[in-house]
Amino acid sequence: MSSSRATRTSGKSPSDKLRTSLIYLLLAIGVGIMLFPFLWMVATSFKLPQDVYNLRLIPETITFDNYTAIFKKAPFGDWIKNTLIISLIATATVVVFDTAAGYVLAKFSFYGKQVIFLIIISTLMVPTEMLIIPWYLIANDFGWSDTYWGVLFPGIITAFGIFLMRQFMDSIPSDLLDAARIDGLNEWRILLHIAIPLVKPAIVTLIILTFIGNWNQFIWPLIVLQTESKFTLPVGIVYFSSELKDTSNWILIMSGTTISIAPLIALFLIFQKQIIRGIALSGMK
C-alpha cells in the first residue's frame, strides 16, 4: 500500500500542490487549537503575580517560585504517589484477570459461555455514575471509604478489557493451542507461553488504556476519598483550585494543573508509538 502512495505523491500537479498546502494549513491551525491551552497553562504557571493578566505567552520574568509554593501549600507529592499506586495496582489486576477471562471466552467452548459473556458485556452499559451511590453506601458499610482499596474495588477487572482480549485471542489458531496440549503443557502454561506472546500488542493497549483511565478517573475517588493526604491528583486539583479560586490565584492553579498533566504527557510521548498503535488496534476490532 505504501508503495502505491509513493507513486501517487511523486506526480504532482499545481492544483494538487495547492490542495496539499491547504491541508497542511488546516492541520497547523488544528495544532494551535490543540496545544494552545497547554502553552497558556505553562506560561501562566511561570509568571509573577502582577503579570497574571498580561497576555504575553512568554513572561517577561520567569519564576519557578510558584512550583515551590504549591508543594508547600498542598501535598502534591502524596497525591502523585497515591495516583501512581492506585493506577499501577489497578492496571496489574486488570491485565491478569482480563487476559485470562478473554482467553477462556475466546478459545474454550462450554455450556453457558454465551450467557456469561453477555452478563460481562452487559455491565459495559452500566456507567460508573449509575453505581456511585450503591458503591458509596457499600464502601461506607464495609469501612472502605478513604482507603486505596475503596478507590480500587470497582475497577480491578474491566468488562471492556475482557471484551478486547477476547477479540484478540479469537485470532489465535486453535491448532497451535491443541498442539501445545498434546505436548503436555497445562492450561496456565499455554496461556502464559503461547497465547499471551501472540497478543502482546493488545496487552500493551490494555495496560496503557487502563493506566490512563485510572490516572484520570475522577468522580469515584472524589466521593470515596475524604482526607487530603489520600487524594488522587484529579481530586486534589479540584480542592486545590476551588480553594484558591476565591483569591483568584490563577498562577498557582495553573502550576497545579501543569504538575498533574505533565507526567501523563511525558508518558505518552515516551510510549506514543505503542499507545497510538494500540488504540488503532482496539478501534479495529
Binding site: 495544532v31 484520570n216 491528583l233 486539583i237 506514543q272
Partner: peptide, 24 residues
C-alpha cells in the same frame, strides 16, 4: 507529528484541563 499532537489532549486529566479552559 500531527497524530501525536492531536492525541495529547486525550491523555490529560479532564479536571485539570477544565480549569485551564476556565482560566482562558
Amino acid at each position: 507529528f500531527f497524530r501525536t499532537v492531536y492525541f495529547i489532549p486525550y491523555v490529560t486529566s479532564i479536571i485539570a484541563v477544565s480549569w485551564v479552559f476556565r482560566w482562558i
